[in-house]
Every structure is written in structure tokens, then in C-alpha cells.
Design a protein around this nucleic acid. Structure first.
Lengths: 189, 189
DNA sequence: AATTCTAACTAACAAGCGTTAGTTTTGTTA
DNA sequence: TAACAAAACTAACGCTTGTTAGTTAGAATT
């Protein structure tokens, strides 16, 4: 039986508060108050505020990295790979929507090795996506626009999905995947 | 001859720092140091830190609102209007890329009337975009996916354009407009 | 030459920050 | 019931925060 530890409760609470106000605007006292304890008590379970941020961000970042690696090494068409990447983002968004706020907006407040690790993961991720798009252009599956425009059009939409997935009535995941794939790949006309 | 006032210099400096680290992570002493003066001297020119944030955000928000109103009242096809909206975003991004960081990430730190005004402008903007898309669906110009998926796919890309316009070698604005319109409207296949 | 304006300065404030040390309460196991 | 571990507590630390008050130096205007 997997019970959730006190540390995980702290991280969950912090994730929600960071989502609402951002890392620097949330104090340790804010997190403690939300849990009905005193700030000092948090330190029985975590090492520092920085550790909370790094656990939130790096855990999700690893999911992206692992997912992307498994997609990029598949032996399928580029378009199929793009579809898989879209589905990967939707799955992670559905499961960790609040953590994505910290990942998108507060990664620059990571320190030293954590910051370096994150930046590297992000660059590798983008590079893998770029490779997929170029593969698709070489194969004639994808139109030859400026690859960066395609890359960031799709990636921007996927990265900010967390902002409206929550409030728009949590539409069914499979319908969402189908529509997103259509809109992002086939356009709207 | 239009010289820039000391107040405008403060806002320009703050805009750059907010872009790099976010509103709450930048102190008045940070802003002052970047201008080679003391923090207290800033208050000869501005009322509060909050005033700086609100000037940065609301000025750009008004540009979006005005631009959208002028597009939505045009007597053209829905697709043409979507094109105009894309071009509007690109123009504003090119001219105010750093201010868009505050608008996107720090609007929740606005207070009272400023916060209310911003939220209202943002909702109205989205609603106008929604109307354009529905008009396009009714006229058979735009495919009948879930309108929200189309709305936020396009809007997400446009809203985060500021993040990569800067580092990707400032590609020519007209080429950027042409490619973005193609990718966002006609898709990538 | 006297006045006003602009824009900087020093010094300080009350409040909040992340964090540590040491102690007490609570619940479980021997 | 005694011992132990988990998790809370109080109190305080040094530092940073946004901001105010009062003053001064130099430039522009009268």
C-alpha cells in the first residue's frame, strides 16, 4: 500500500501555490499556513525551498525527456512521431498540470547543477523535435517552411496547454488528442 | 524632439529585469543598481513598484485591445481577420518583446482596479477571437473542430512568440508573418 | 544674484524572508 | 509501561524587502 509521505504533501501543496503565484512570490510561511503548520516544521521533511522547486521541475522534465527519447527512436514516419509527441504532452499535462507552471515559468530560479541539468534537458528535447521535423521534410511528409517556425508553433501550443486544460471543463483526453493532432498538423482550413 | 524621461528609463530597465527574472524576483535595489543610482532615488520618478508593473502591462494590453477591436469590426472574411490578428501579435512582439514577459507571467501581481482591468481586457480579447473563429465556421471557411482547441492553439503560439523571437536571430518580420500565417492556418502537411 | 526645479543622496523604518537550534507533543512499537 | 521515532512547536538569527523623511548638489529660470 503506497501512502503519500509528508514530504510529498509539502511538494503537492507548494506545486499548487507556485502554480497560482509563482515560486518567488510564495514564502515558506505560505506553504506552511496552507498545511496548517508552522514554517519551521517543513524542515523536518525537506532540505530547503530550493529542493522543493527542483523536485517539482526535474521530475516532470525527466518524463518529457524519457518520452521524447522513446518516440524519436521509433521506426515510424515523421508525422506519426509528431503525433506521438503531441500525445505525450497531453498525457503529462493531464497528470501534472500544476507542476508545468513551475517548469515553464520558474526554471530560471533553479541553482547550479539543477539549472544546468534542466537547460540541457530542454535543449536536447528541442533538438530531438527538430530532428523529427527535418526528417519529415526530407521525406516530403512535412512542408518546407522555416523549421523553427514549425517547431515553435507546435511546441508553444503544447507547452501552454496546462493553462487552459484546467478551466475549460477538462474535455475528454482522447477527443483532445484527436483534435489537437488535427489542428496542429492539418491546420484549420 | 522626443527625449525619454527618467521615468521611462526606469520602466525600460525594469522591463528588462522582469523579463529575465520575473516581477517578484527583482527588487527596487536591483533596478536602481542597474541604473547606477540608489533605490530611494527611484521614488522621485515613480510612485511604487506596483506602478511600474502596471504601466508595463497595461500599455501593451491596450495595444492588443485596440488592434483586436479594429480587426473584428472590419468587413472581411474570417480567415482574413485571423491573418490580421496574427500580424498584430507579430508587430507587438517585435516592438515590445520584453514587456510581454510581464504581461504573460506577472499579470497576477497587479492589484485591485489594475488587475480587474487587465482580466477584463484579456477576456474581451479572447471573446473577440472566438467570434471570428465561429464566424469562419459558419461561413464554411474554417473546419468545425472544437472552437476552443483552435482558439488556444493559435493564441498560445502567438503569446509565446516573444520567447523565441529574440534568440532566433531576429528573422525578417515580413517573412515571419508569411510563415506564421501559413503554418497556423494551413498546417504543416 | 536669487530662486526654483530636477534628481540624486544618506539614513532609517517596520515587515517579511529562509533557515537553524533546541524543545515538546504525538503516536507506535518493544 | 517504557522507549523510540516522527513531526510538530517556540524563539530567534541575519538579511532583504518596499518605502519614507529629510537633505544636498547642480542646472535652468527669473
Amino acid at each position: 500500500m503506497k501512502t503519500i509521505s509528508r514530504k510529498e504533501e509539502i511538494i503537492a501543496t507548494a506545486t499548487r501555490l507556485f502554480y497560482e503565484k509563482g515560486y518567488t512570490a510564495v514564502s515558506m510561511r505560505d506553504i506552511a499556513t496552507a498545511m496548517d503548520i508552522k514554517a519551521a516544521s517543513l524542515y523536518n521533511h525537506i532540505k530547503s525551498k530550493q529542493e522543493i522547486l527542483s523536485e517539482i521541475i526535474l521530475k516532470v522534465a525527466k518524463e518529457f525527456t524519457d518520452g521524447m527519447v522513446s518516440v524519436v527512436t521509433e521506426n515510424t514516419s515523421a508525422i506519426k512521431k509528431v503525433e506521438k509527441v503531441i500525445e505525450l504532452h497531453i498525457d503529462i499535462t493531464v497528470n501534472h498540470s500544476e507542476a508545468l507552471a513551475a517548469l515553464n515559468n520558474d526554471w530560471m530560479h533553479l541553482e547550479e547543477e539543477d539549472l544546468e541539468a534542466f537547460v540541457k534537458m530542454r535543449e536536447d528535447y528541442e533538438e530531438n523535435f527538430r530532428i523529427i521535423i527535418k526528417q519529415g521534410m526530407d521525406a516530403g511528409e512535412i512542408k518546407s517552411y522555416h523549421p523553427e517556425v514549425i517547431l515553435f508553433s507546435i511546441l508553444s501550443t503544447l507547452r501552454t496547454l496546462y493553462l487552459w486544460y484546467q478551466k475549460r471543463g477538462k474535455v475528454d483526453v482522447n477527443i483532445l488528442k484527436k483534435d489537437m493532432v488535427s489542428v496542429l498538423i492539418k491546420g484549420i482550413v
